[in-house]
Computed example of a mutant assay.
Amino acid sequence: MLRDWVDAARPRTLPASASPVIAATAYAWHYGVMNVVAAVICLLFALLAQIASNFANDYYDYKKGSDRADRVGPRRAVASGDISPKSMLMATLLTLIISCGLGLALLIWGGWWLILAGMIIVVFAIAYSAGPYPLSYKGLGDVAVFIFFGLVAVNLTYYVQALHFCIEVFWGSVAIGLLSVNILMVNNYRDVEADRLSGKKTVVVRFGHTFARYAYLFNGVVALLCTVNIWFSYNFWSIGAAILFFCVHIITWRQMCILKGTALNPVLGKTARNLLIFTIFLSIFLIL
Rank of each mutant, 00 (worst) to 15 (best):
D195L: 06
N35E: 15
N54G: 07
L116K: 10
I51N: 09
T95H: 06
G101I: 06
T95K: 05
R71N: 09
I183P: 02
V203M: 14
A16W: 03
H249C: 10
K63A: 12
A28Y: 00
N155M: 14
Y214L: 12
G101R: 08
N57K: 06
S283V: 05
T252F: 08
I250L: 15
T227R: 06
Y133D: 01
R75Y: 05
L102A: 01
T210V: 14
A117I: 15
V21R: 03
A130F: 04
D70K: 08
L286T: 10
Y189Q: 02
I98L: 13
I284P: 03
F124Q: 08
I280D: 00
I277L: 13
Q161R: 10
F246Q: 10
S99Y: 09
P134N: 10
A242F: 02
G208P: 06
I230H: 00
A125K: 10
L259C: 07
R76I: 05
A242T: 01
G141E: 01
N219Y: 11
L89H: 12
S136G: 14
S99E: 09
S198I: 03
V40K: 10
V40W: 12
I280H: 00
Q255N: 15
K64I: 01
S66R: 08
K201E: 13
A125N: 12
G208K: 09
V204D: 00
S19P: 03
S80F: 06
D7S: 13
H30N: 12
G172E: 04
V72F: 05
I167S: 14
V122S: 14
A130Q: 03
G101A: 07
T13R: 04
F211T: 13
Q255P: 01
G172T: 03
G111Y: 10
S53V: 06
V152H: 02
I176N: 00
T92H: 04
R196V: 09
Y158F: 15
V123E: 10
A223K: 04
F245Q: 01
T227H: 07
A8R: 00
A39R: 01
D82W: 11
T252W: 02
Y60Q: 11
